[in-house]
Amino acid sequence: MSKQFQFKLVLLGESAVGKSSLVLRFVKDQFDDYRESTIGAAFLTQTVTLDDQTIVKFEIWDTAGQERYKAPMYYRNANCAVVVYDITQASSLDKARTWIRELQRQADPSIVIALCGNKTDLTARRQITQEEAKKYADEEGLMWFETSAKTGEGVSEVFTAIAKKLPLSAPSSRTNAARGTAAARQGVDLNRQTTTQGSNEACNC
């Protein structure tokens, strides 16, 4: 009989870096060229099968990038976080560093953090080199990836790698995620709808 472990995962990063598109690609294998901006936070679930005996279920919180929504309630009790930046926008990595500092300061000390450079399909417009981002990730002890939500490149690898790094023997994993479920009604459940509330904005994600 397979065992299922449940973890709360939060996505953080500047607005329009492609957080929602990244999650939509992972959960539904879909991409929208014109995706509405997330307001507050959206809530989704998806599972990763590690082997015949182990299934990891992620309860995913996709947060808005606007500063006014930068609230600990979205990453409180999170077991893991994906901090996303846009490889074509140098300022988005600076913003990612800010989020990571906040996680290191306020989140659970055991949280697994992945730094993710999105929009590799726009590599001709790259402003952030792989070397720069990976060096920072190594210095901070973070996992590091590059992805394209548009093509799907590298997306599943991010979540699979996080699932493998999580302590599957920890009984608290299910407890923390359950707390997130109780708060899910404060967000938009994207498992039930494919778009979030907000302005019609081409995010080029």
Rank of each mutant, 00 (worst) to 15 (best):
V17A: 00
R35I: 14
V10G: 01
R174I: 14
K3Q: 11
Y75E: 03
D51N: 15
D121Y: 06
M143A: 13
P171M: 06
D86T: 05
C205W: 10
A42D: 15
A124C: 07
Q53L: 15
D138T: 14
A107C: 08
N118R: 03
A71S: 14
T120D: 01
A182D: 10
A137Y: 01
N79R: 09
V23G: 01
C203N: 09
A183C: 11
S169Q: 13
E201Q: 11
S173M: 15
K70R: 15
R25G: 05
M1W: 08
I113C: 00
S92R: 00
V84E: 05
Q127M: 11
N200W: 06
V158H: 04
T196I: 03
A96F: 05
V23P: 06
F31K: 05
K57W: 04
K165C: 09
F145H: 11
G180R: 06
G18M: 02
I55P: 01
S2A: 14
S37A: 15
Q193K: 14
Y85G: 07
K19T: 02
G152I: 06
R179D: 10
S172I: 10
N200V: 14
I60A: 02
T98D: 09
Q104C: 09
D189V: 13
E157F: 07
K70E: 13
V23Q: 00
A137H: 02
L22V: 11
A183G: 11
A133K: 00
E140Q: 15
T175I: 13
E201L: 12
D32M: 13
V27W: 02
F5N: 10
A161P: 02
A149H: 02
L103E: 04
N191Q: 10
L142M: 08
V17N: 04
G117E: 03
Q30A: 13
S199R: 06
F43L: 04
F7W: 10
G154I: 01
L93R: 02
E59Y: 12
L11Y: 09
V155Q: 03
E67M: 11
R68C: 10
Q4M: 14
Q6A: 10
R76C: 11
G198V: 07
R25F: 05
Y75D: 00
V112A: 03
Q186C: 07
T123V: 09
T38Y: 05
A42E: 05
T49C: 12
G152F: 07
Y69S: 06
F5E: 10
L93I: 07
G40N: 07
A178N: 13
V84T: 11
I128R: 07
L50A: 10
A170H: 03
Q197D: 12
L190I: 12
F26S: 00
A42I: 02
A178V: 04
W99P: 09
T120W: 01
P72K: 11
G198L: 06
K8Q: 08
A163F: 03
G187H: 02
V10Q: 01
V84A: 03
V56Q: 05
V10M: 00
Q89S: 15
T88P: 08
A149L: 06
A137D: 02
E102P: 05
Q130W: 10
A170C: 09
V112L: 00
G198R: 03
N118M: 06
M1T: 08
S148I: 05
N200D: 12
S156G: 03
A133M: 03
T181D: 12
R97H: 06
L12Q: 00
Q106M: 12
G198P: 08
F5K: 12
S91V: 13
W61Q: 03
P109G: 01
A81I: 04
A107W: 02
Q4G: 10
